[in-house]
Design a protein around this nucleic acid. Structure first.
Lengths: 205, 205
DNA sequence: TGTACATCAGTGAACGCGCGTTCACTGATGTAC
DNA sequence: TGTACATCAGTGAACGCGCGTTCACTGATGTAC
């Protein structure tokens, strides 16, 4: 099988789009299968219940996000050996990528599920938590490499600084969606970039 | 009437708590009225349908948020005449307030409804949009006053800078909720504070 | 190569429950004259 | 002060629809011997 997309993947893709636009509860199985063009029983062959759909979605989403970060990281490290410059390049690449999304970032599943925790068993919320921790670790690694060379101008907690990326992306997505201006997300990322630039710029003393 | 909370207010308060924890769709009228201790018809006496509940909630939420910002602004301006210092004080006050919430910030209705737009008529999404625009305007006013005195170290769009507050609060709430660590929100606000400090610190040239 | 069985990827029909909504009605308080 | 009517803040019962879930079944492909 597996030539092209599997039915399972099509379910996930279509469900994700619906959920990001309307929320989990408002995206019915009925509606998903209508678009996938299978019967309801076909859906339940792939997922034993709706909760399992949520878990599969968040797993896929996190994996995809990780891959994007991996690619940006690799490319940024290619372009500069200096950890600070590589980080700034990475942020610029990320901002550009966000700006290139045709109709704006569709939304973050982590945020969606975070705002709907009670609907899910602990599996989903744990996945969310671990995803954010892994992103913290990822950015923290960079920050430590930067700090080994550059002195920060202000005393800040490195984990909080690492979280700033996730926080900015989540916040940026919310305000961009709410104000219906896709550019706001990239703008916020560029402000974080500006902060890192100032924070680690050599003191002129 | 109006001694203590009205029934209408109790409906709103209980509905808000449920919606922030579980999402709009997952918070049933049935569940709300059970806690308020009225019948379903009692609910429909106050709100003609569930959509009207959403609109009333977001209006109340925005008004409450505005009041909080007003208070912080007033207090900060009392404590310093310098616009930059007053702004930094305001951010510190905001961070402290967020840290003092007993079990963390319960979530932002703007974000909740933004992630569930299709469920609502345009009234709700428009309210969301206007709320964010008014917050932009509010912070922009401060930034302009700061810029009149201090030169920024980096060229940044003042509207984007104003949006940074909303974005940070939204993002901070998401990661604090998702990671189940209420302190993360205040940390992110303090990072924005650090950015403003560096951005407008007098150049040492 | 043929036969038997297993697995995969679904179909079709039915279920019961809970949800949002409606409608006719009510008892207490307020207002006009 | 009494009477008539209006409004406020609900009650109680019923509705129908859509939702998630179940269950017995099926036709195509894969595997063992």
């Amino acid at each position: 099988m597996n030539r092209g997309e599997t039915t399972r993947d099509r379910i996930l893709t279509i469900a994700e789009r619906g959920i990001l636009a309307k929320g989990f509860g408002a995206t019915s199985i009925e509606e998903i299968i209508a678009e996938v063009e299978i019967t309801k029983s076909g859906f339940f062959y792939h997922f034993k219940d709706k909760n399992e759909l949520a878990r599969a979605l968040i797993e896929r989403y996190i994996a995809a996000d990780d891959e994007v970060f991996d690619q940006i990281e690799a490319r940024a490290n290619e372009l500069s050996d200096d950890p600070l410059h590589a980080f700034l390049i990475g942020l610029k690449l990320l901002a550009e990528m966000m700006d290139d999304l045709p109709s704006g970032h569709p939304g973050c599943l982590v945020a969606t599920f975070t705002y709907q925790e009670r609907l899910f068993d602990s599996g989903v919320t744990d996945l969310n938590r671990r995803a954010l921790l892994s992103w913290r670790k990822r950015f923290r690694r960079h920050i430590d490499r930067i700090k080994a060379i550059y002195d920060p101008c202000d005393e800040v907690d490195p984990d909080a600084l690492a979280d700033m990326l996730s926080s900015t992306i989540e916040g940026g997505i919310v305000i961009a969606k709410a104000m219906r201006d896709p550019k706001l997300l990239a703008q916020q990322i560029m402000l974080v970039r500006s902060y890192f630039k100032l924070l680690f710029s050599p003191r002129t003393t």
